[in-house]
Design a protein around this nucleic acid. Structure first.
Lengths: 155, 155
DNA sequence: CCGATTTCAGCTACACTGAAATCC
DNA sequence: CGGATTTCAGTGTAGCTGAAATCG
């Protein structure tokens, strides 16, 4: 028996390697706890910060787009965006070509937050990769990306 | 500028590869959404199921142990355990050697749930690795484990 | 006294369902 | 009418702080 794997027998007592799903989850739990800690003075959670980085790269993203990128419902993302609006980190503007849509964009405060906290977030990523060579970092990125692609719902 | 990375300049408009932190997070988001969906009929969340797999491998784990494994506070884990107790999937017994501790163990219902849902969880992991060779799966596990070790707070 | 574990109270954030309104 | 986006109301889970009690 092992983490995230079926328990089909009580006979074997030898510990087996944890499932890949478990290793992914534990790494993410660790990253999130460290990021939440680092981002505390900024008053944003890891998820909120992530949304800001997405908006930095894709200005004009809608709330529904964010929901698809995070594999959740539009309602969950609406709560997230609502928090960012209240903090004044993002703003909305109606899409001229589709009046129902609301395009999101960073405010100056949102951009300043990313500029201020980018370095510490980079430092955390560097710390995570401290034991990996350049080649291994590329391999990790490639493997994670391909795993994501295999699981991604075929739109 | 790129995901989870500092935005130090508005000049460059070329999209750069997303940060490793972002790739890890997105894969975990995807895994969790798929697992939540698969586990819905069991009436447990991904986090609750994960706790059950930990207890399957380490009977007698305490609530505080679970908190350390998930890098959260004892209070958060207390809520999680409380839910599992209410569902009758785990039970507690006082530690004979340390009266303050409460040792957790799976109930028969908890073990049956793992037996019943292990195969579908395995299938999800297999789907995630569909595009990876055996060697690549081992490499992914190794790289993730080393990344976790680099970030783990030196106890 | 100190450290670790558990518990209680209160709070915010995250995520879901169901339903409705708006727009293409 | 159907599909997509947004919104409202309600519910439950996840995670935190602060404070307290218990035990070694």
């Amino acid at each position: 028996m092992c983490f995230h794997r079926g328990v089909t027998s009580d006979v074997s007592t030898e510990a087996q390697p944890p499932g890949l799903l478990y290793v992914v989850k534990q790494l993410e739990l660790l990253v999130r706890s460290r990021l939440d800690e680092v981002l505390r003075p900024a008053g944003v959670t890891t998820l909120q910060y992530t949304a800001l980085t997405v908006l930095a790269q894709r200005p004009g993203t809608t709330s529904a787009d964010l929901a698809r990128l995070s594999f959740t419902t539009a309602q969950s993302t609406a709560d997230l965006v609502s928090g960012l609006l209240k903090k004044g980190l993002v703003e909305r503007a109606p899409d001229p070509t589709h009046r129902r849509r609301l395009l999101l964009d960073l405010t100056d405060a949102g951009r300043e937050l990313l500029v201020a906290y980018g370095p510490v977030v980079d430092a955390l990523e560097e710390e995570m990769c401290a034991d990996l060579t350049e080649w291994e970092r590329g391999a990790l990125r490639d493997l994670l990306t391909r795993a994501r692609r295999s699981l991604t719902p075929r739109a």
